[in-house]
Design a protein around this nucleic acid. Structure first.
Length: 466
DNA sequence: TTAGGGCTAGCA
DNA sequence: TGCTAGCCCTAA
């Protein structure tokens, strides 16, 4: 699948109220680029949102917030105040949680204070990171004081830090989602609706390869280096038969200013100059280099005509074995089937008295040819000396010994019994996702079904339900 | 990718 | 020898 399409799908799905395992599966199976900062941010927000919906707050949320802060910094965006507050509240809750778990965890608490506050946040303050607020500094001082004061500890314990963290995280998530534009798919659908396009018109929307990955965000920093001058349009047909060209940068601008609806490729003098230079160098190249395709076509025609002539002059041999050899040496598949069928009928009497070969043997016998790049024609052969020779592979029959070697590689997998864990997982997965989604189930529980295929899952379910 | 027919290895 | 779980092949 095209990476751009994968990004559009992930970006759209990640904002939908669907289960995390579906999102995880999408992230696992779809080809994703590492350049789309917007998509990264969406994934991090989704991760935080999942934790919040589960009512849990962990240091993973802290890490996600820090990574979002890095992305915002890379995009040149300012940090939301709600994000700073949420970060502070999550840090407090992560630390106080250990204090609440009893005296036995007191050592862990001080360790957490050291890890979460002294190291992580202290480093951020010294580095002037965007998440640092006055509130955070004050909280740091209070937390540090609890290390030496019993009353300080009690004050911290009296606070409902969990709810504070969850509440502030929710506020931040709402603001962050509002700050982000609609997903590309939603945005495109909305724009097409505005243009009065029918649903069926989507099929006629052409999306060229050069359209960037998630490049519709406001900041031009989302466009990877090197792609900034290579924007290609998305052609969207309108009701009157004309086509509206949406450029990735234009789409980005539309995200900011939807009143702007006329777009073109960066009409700067520099771009025009480069375009002219490219056109000039292309024409120079065309005059210097002869297109090899024409020669290739000519050679192909010659080979085809020679082959046809050769087939017309071919005389069938008298012996049956020769018929088989002819079939083997022929490049015409229909010829192979036909002559093989004849041969099997010819030997039918003796064949009936023989034990029936296994399916594997039958298959390997029927297909026991191998490709050989070696030229089979003797050097200096007068009949072929004037023909054009291309290094094409040829089929040749194999000796019985060779057949056995080939069969060895097509041997059955060793039977592996299903463990109770595999059976239980399969049963639960079918209950959850339904029968028939074997590939999806396999990917979702790859760690359980380590050496299984989707067909194995299907077969096992068939056995279990017999 | 899935469904279903058919084959095979392993076991009682 | 018969049964069956697991595996393979092929059509859709």
């Amino acid at each position: 699948m095209d990476i751009r399409i994968a990004h559009w799908i992930v970006e759209f799905m990640i904002l939908q109220p669907i289960e995390d395992c579906v999102v995880n599966t999408l992230l696992y199976v779809l080809p994703l680029s590492d350049n789309d900062l917007r998509l990264k941010k969406a994934i991090l927000l989704r991760r935080i949102s999942s934790e919040v919906s589960n009512g849990s707050v962990s240091e993973r949320v802290l890490e996600s917030l820090e990574r979002i802060e890095e992305l915002e910094y890379m995009e040149g965006n300012s940090i939301l105040e709600s994000m700073k507050e949420a970060y502070c509240a999550v840090a407090v809750d992560c630390t106080v949680r250990l204090l609440r778990e009893g005296p036995g965890k007191r050592a862990d608490y001080f360790d957490s204070v050291k890890r979460t506050w002294m190291a992580r946040i202290g480093k951020m303050i010294s580095g002037k990171a965007g998440l640092v607020s006055e509130q955070l500094k004050e909280t740091l001082a209070q937390i540090e004081a609890t290390k030496w004061s019993a009353t300080g500890c009690q004050n911290v314990l009296n606070k409902d830090t969990r709810n504070d963290a969850l509440r502030l995280l929710k506020i931040f998530l709402n603001e962050a989602r509002e700050a982000m534009f609609p997903s590309f798919l939603e945005f495109t659908a909305e724009k097409m609706n505005e243009m009065g396009l029918e649903k069926n018109d989507f099929s006629s929307v052409s999306i060229p390869d050069q359209v960037g990955l998630g490049q519709r965000a406001a900041s031009s920093t989302l466009v990877p280096e090197g792609d900034k001058n290579s924007e290609m349009p998305i052609n969207i047909p309108t009701e009157d038969g004309k086509k509206v060209m949406l450029h990735s940068s234009s789409i980005a601008r539309m995200g900011v200013d939807t009143a702007c609806n006329k777009y073109d490729c960066l009409p700067t003098p520099e771009v025009s100059k480069i375009q002219e230079a490219l056109k000039s160098s292309t024409s120079d190249l065309q005059t210097l280099v002869k297109d090899p395709l024409l020669d290739a076509l000519h050679i192909a025609e010659t080979v085809l005509s020679n082959t046809a002539r050769e087939n017309m002059n071919h005389k069938p041999s008298e012996e049956n074995q020769d018929k088989v050899d002819a079939a083997v040496s022929s490049h015409d598949n229909e010829g192979i089937v036909e002559v093989q069928a004849k041969n099997s009928n010819i030997g039918n009497q003796s064949y009936q008295n023989m034990p029936r070969p296994s399916l594997m043997e039958r298959n390997s016998t029927a297909r026991t040819y191998e490709w050989d790049d070696a030229q089979d024609r003797p050097e200096g052969s007068s009949s072929h000396s004037e023909k054009v020779h291309l290094p094409s592979p040829k089929k040749r029959s194999l000796s019985p010994l060779k057949k056995y070697e080939t069969m060895k590689f097509a041997r059955r997998r060793k039977t592996k019994r299903w463990s109770s864990l595999e059976e239980e997982t399969l049963r639960a997965a079918v209950e959850k996702y339904g029968r028939g989604n074997w590939k999806f189930i396999l990917i979702s529980y790859r760690d359980v079904f380590e050496e299984r295929t989707e067909v194995d899952l299907k077969d096992k379910w068939r056995n279990m339900t017999r």
